[in-house]
């Protein structure tokens, strides 16, 4: 018990990092998801094709694999390219490594962007076709109809699945401990390494995750109730 109390501040710092990285990744993911989701729905075959490739790849492969590709794989390639450039042009090497934080942010954002893209697409497609037709029959352009009629309704329906995605991502951040990023789980591991109190510490870690996910899902419920006007 004492060891848990003593290490609690360190664990909380880890939890803070977990929240920070989750919030940042979800925010970037929302932008990527909006672009990917609308591209998938667009009439342009090329846009829709690339968006589908992106979404399929990041939803169809493990986050852990995506993470190591970005942290270990891509720098390797870049270093090879750099090697040629250095040899050919005589410039001095400038690239060493992707910082852990950047790799984590890139991987989590790309991953959540793919899931959020599907949430956007499903949200837009769940809106009755008659809404678009009514808007167009009033003379709105498809852009105006999307922006003023379809998206506001779709956003409301996207709140529950977005909440789920946030919680899933928050739990998945534990994976980034593998490349040494010091979020909650990694902090726990380090403390266990020093104290050998695996059960107590990992249980405390679990409860901190639980507190975060539960309070967030309560917040989503509240948001949903607040927004329940019309439809």
């Amino acid at each position: 018990m004492e060891v848990v109390i003593n290490s609690f501040p360190v664990l909380l710092m880890g939890a803070g990092m977990t929240i920070l990285i989750t919030l940042l990744s979800i925010s970037i993911g929302c932008v990527l998801g909006l672009v990917a989701g609308l591209s998938r729905l667009s009439k342009s075959r090329i846009l829709s094709f690339f968006a589908t490739c992106y979404i399929d790849f990041f939803r169809g492969t493990p986050l852990l694999v995506q993470l190591v590709i970005i942290y270990f794989g891509i720098p390797d390639i870049l270093k090879d390219v750099q090697g040629y450039l250095v040899a050919a042009l005589g410039i001095s090497p400038f690239f060493k490594n992707i910082p852990v934080f950047a790799a984590v942010l890139i991987a989590l954002s790309l991953n959540s962007g793919a899931y959020i893209g599907e949430i956007f697409r499903a949200g837009v497609q769940s809106i009755n076709k008659g809404q678009m037709e009514a808007a167009r029959s009033l003379g709105m352009t498809s852009h105006q109809a999307m922006r003023f009629i379809i998206l506001p309704q779709a956003f409301k329906r996207m709140i529950p699945p977005l909440g789920n995605e946030f919680i899933a991502l928050l739990k998945d951040t534990a994976l980034v401990s593998i490349i040494g990023f010091e979020e909650l789980f990694r902090r726990g591991q380090l403390i266990v390494g020093a104290t050998y109190e695996a059960f107590a510490i990992y249980l405390a870690v679990a409860f901190i995750y639980l507190a975060m996910t539960l309070s967030f899902s309560r917040f989503v419920d509240y948001l949903e109730r607040r927004l329940r006007t019309g439809d």
Binding site: N128, G130, Q131, E133, A134, A135, I149, P152, Q153, K156, T229, G230, D231
Partner: peptide, 10 residues
């Protein structure tokens, strides 16, 4: 329209 198609959030 037959189904009105009013904007439900307005």
């Amino acid at each position: 329209f037959q189904q009105f198609n009013l904007f439900p959030n307005k």
